[in-house]
Amino acid sequence: MSTAVANPPPGFALDINDLQIQEAAIRIQASYRGHRSRKELREKGPPKILQPLKDVVLLEGSAAKLECRVSAFPDPFIVWAKDGTQLKDGLKYRYVFEDPDVVALVVRDGSLADLGQYTVTIKNTFGLATGSACIIVEAPAKVIKGPDNLKVVTGATVVLKAEIAGEPPPDVGWLKDGEDIEEDDRVFYDIGDTTSILTIKNAQHSDAGKYEVFVENNLGIDQSVARVDVL
C-alpha cells in the first residue's frame, strides 16, 4: 500500500530547476564549506610538535643536528635560539626544512661554547608552539696553555698556572720530576673550571726541578712541562 505525498502549502513550492534557487543553494553550500574550513583551521592550523626535540651529543670539531616533527597550516615561521639568544641561519647554524613536516637545526664545527639549551619556536597566524633540548658537548682533555719556566730566589713564592679544557671536565694532577706532588700548607694546587694553579710558598733549593701538569678524561690525555730554578 503506497503512502500519498502531501502537496506543499500554497506559496511554498520550490522549482529546483529555477536558476535563482540553484544559485541560492550554491551560496548556502559555499558558506557552509567556508565555515567548516575556518573551523578546521582553528582546530588543525595552530602549530603542534608531533615528535619533540631530543638531547644530542656533539663531539668537538664535528656537527650535530636537532630535529622535531611538526604540524601547522599555513606553513609556520621557525626561529631557533640558544640559551635565550636567537640564532641566525648561516655558516655556523643552518636551518633545515625536511619534507614534509620535519624542522631541524644543524650546528657545525662543534666546540665547548656550543654546550647549552636550544629552543625552537614554531609560529603562524593561529598560534605558536615551542620545544627545547640540550646539546651536550664532548671534548678531549687539553692543556690550552702550559705553565711558564721560572727562575726565583730562595724564599719567593712560585706560581705555576695552566689553562685547561675538556668535557667531561678532566681530572687534573701535578708532578715534580715525575712524582706526584704531596700537598701541604706550603705546596698545593687549585683546580678551577678552566685553570689549575700550583703554588709553592717560601721556595727552597730543593723545590727546583721539572714540574708537569696533566689532564685526563674519557676522550683523551694531555700534559705540559715547565722548569723551575731556585737561585
Rank of each mutant, 00 (worst) to 15 (best):
S31K: 15
L59N: 10
H205N: 13
E23Y: 14
N218K: 15
A141T: 04
D171A: 12
Q86L: 11
V70W: 04
A226Q: 09
M1N: 05
V228M: 03
V143G: 00
V56L: 09
R42N: 05
K151V: 10
D190V: 10
P47L: 00
E138H: 12
R94A: 04
A226V: 12
H35N: 12
V137F: 10
Q86E: 13
D229C: 05
E183N: 10
S62H: 11
A162G: 05
P100H: 05
G110T: 11
G110W: 08
P47F: 05
R108V: 14
I200G: 07
P52N: 00
P47N: 04
L198H: 07
N218P: 14
A203I: 14
D185L: 09
L128K: 05
V57E: 11
G116W: 09
L128Y: 12
V96K: 05
D184S: 04
A63P: 02
V96F: 01
V213Q: 11
R186I: 02
D109I: 03
L58R: 03
A156D: 13
G192H: 12
D114I: 05
P8I: 07
A226L: 14
R69M: 08
T3R: 03
V152S: 04
V187S: 06
K145I: 09
T195G: 06
V70C: 06
N218D: 07
Q204G: 08
V103A: 00
G166H: 07
Y32A: 14
E98C: 08
D99P: 03
G220N: 02
K201S: 11
P74D: 02
D101V: 09
R38C: 13
I200K: 06
K142S: 04
K88R: 09
K48D: 01
P76K: 07
A162D: 01
L41G: 00
R38Y: 11
V225R: 08
S132D: 01
A81S: 15
T125L: 13
A208N: 06
G110D: 01
V152G: 00
Y95P: 01
G34Q: 10
V215C: 01
W80K: 08
K161L: 12
R38M: 08
K142V: 04
I181G: 02
T157A: 07
V102F: 10
A24Y: 15
V96H: 00
A165P: 00
P76F: 08
K145C: 03
R42L: 14
L160R: 05
E98F: 01
K88Y: 11
D114S: 11
I164S: 10
R108T: 13
T154D: 10
I221S: 06
C134S: 12
V225P: 12
R42G: 01
A13S: 15
T121V: 07
A63Q: 11
E182A: 15
I28G: 15
A139W: 09
R27P: 14
T3D: 10
R108N: 15
